[in-house]
């Protein structure tokens, strides 16, 4: 606590100020949770399946930009003493994001096609166990391929602190919040206003009827996985940029928290995922001001309390509307 006050930005060292700062940090953290949480919530909305492999898609999103960056010569290999952080041009940053998004979209569809589709008509338990299996496969595959040690992620954007008046955030955290807000809004509009979005909503209401209305159900489910994975990929690159280290198990806790955020907000609801993510991030950060040990525990207590009062989650509908 004392250190925290000491490191607080100039202009005030009161507890209120520290808390406010933590709220700001929490919003950045929560934006990441929200980006990942939509993947859980969309897939659940359409298939009533918890895609536990989604956290690993996020992890791979980070690696899918790490390797292209490395091949292009942008590294922060600590073993390389001659390493000088190169300034990464903006178009390369954009390329790395797109590369990661494309690879994750493909991976998401691949997982759906080969792990979940064959089980579409089996029990939900079978699909759930498969999801856990895919998750473990990707984690351990990641350890095998990328080695377990954390890797330094290239400095895509030079970090600096930005004074926002009452609080200060690093520029990378501000980018996280802005990108997440834009992507979540875009996704919401996509689902509500476009034809494929309508197909997704129809599938989530009633897949059989959607089929009878001429909706390509398999294609729509594939699209749902692709979009969820794209969001996770963006989250992965953003976090890698901010941290800046990545490791094959980074998807484990982030995935679990994002899942909690999705349930908290009401699984199946995209605005719910956003709200749940932010709430979780802020709670965690604020509690962390007092005790980092209990920060995560409090997040889960929050989940239990919300579910006791409203089992369908904050924005969840007890009816059938999902996505």
């Amino acid at each position: 606590m004392l250190e925290l006050l000491a490191t607080a930005e100039p202009g005030g060292t009161s507890l209120a100020q520290a808390l406010l700062q933590q709220v700001a940090n929490g919003i950045a953290k929560g934006s990441v949770y929200a980006l990942i949480a939509v993947g859980y919530t969309m897939v659940y909305g359409v298939l009533q399946l918890i895609n536990f492999a989604h956290g690993e898609v996020y992890m791979l999103g980070a690696y899918f930009s790490y390797y292209p960056a490395k091949w292009m010569g942008y590294t922060t290999d600590p073993e390389d003493p001659t390493f000088v952080p190169a300034k990464v041009p903006l178009y390369v940053v954009g390329f790395l994001f797109v590369c990661s998004m494309a690879c994750c979209a493909f991976l998401g569809m691949l997982i759906e096609r080969f792990a979940y589709r064959p089980l579409r008509n089996s029990s939900r338990l079978a699909a759930l166990i498969t999801a856990i299996g895919v998750s473990l496969l990707l984690q351990n595959g990641g350890i095998m391929l990328f080695k377990a040690d954390p890797r330094g992620f290239p400095t895509l954007i030079e970090q600096s602190s930005v004074d926002l008046g009452l609080v200060a955030l690093t520029n990378t955290k501000i980018i996280i919040v802005v990108v997440a807000a834009v992507m979540m809004t875009g996704l919401h509009l996509f689902v509500q206003k476009t034809r494929p979005g309508a197909a997704m909503r129809a599938c989530s209401f009633d897949m059989r009827t959607a089929r009878l209305m001429g909706v390509n159900v398999d294609g729509t489910i594939g699209l749902t996985f692709a979009i969820g994975s794209i969001m996770a990929a963006v989250a992965g690159v953003l976090v890698a940029m901010d941290q800046p280290t990545i490791d094959p198990l980074m998807g484990l806790m982030a995935g679990l928290k994002a899942f909690v955020a999705a349930v908290l907000g009401g699984i199946g609801s995209i605005p719910g995922a956003a709200l749940g993510g932010l709430l979780l991030g802020v709670t965690e950060s604020v509690v962390g001001t007092f005790s980092t040990t209990y920060a995560e525990a409090v997040a889960f207590v929050l989940l239990i309390l919300v579910l006791l009062v409203k089992p369908s989650g904050l924005l969840g509908k007890s009816g059938r509307e999902k996505v």
């Binding site: 209401f205 009827t209 009878l212 209305m213 390509n216 159900v217 059938r320």
Partner: peptide, 23 residues
């Protein structure tokens, strides 16, 4: 595939109506 048939004009109104209740 069902959605191809719908495109070619073979359409079913299902038993139990299949109305989307929240739309």
């Amino acid at each position: 595939q069902t959605h191809r048939l719908v495109e070619s004009g073979l359409v079913m109104a299902p038993e139990g109506r299949g109305i989307f209740p929240n739309l």
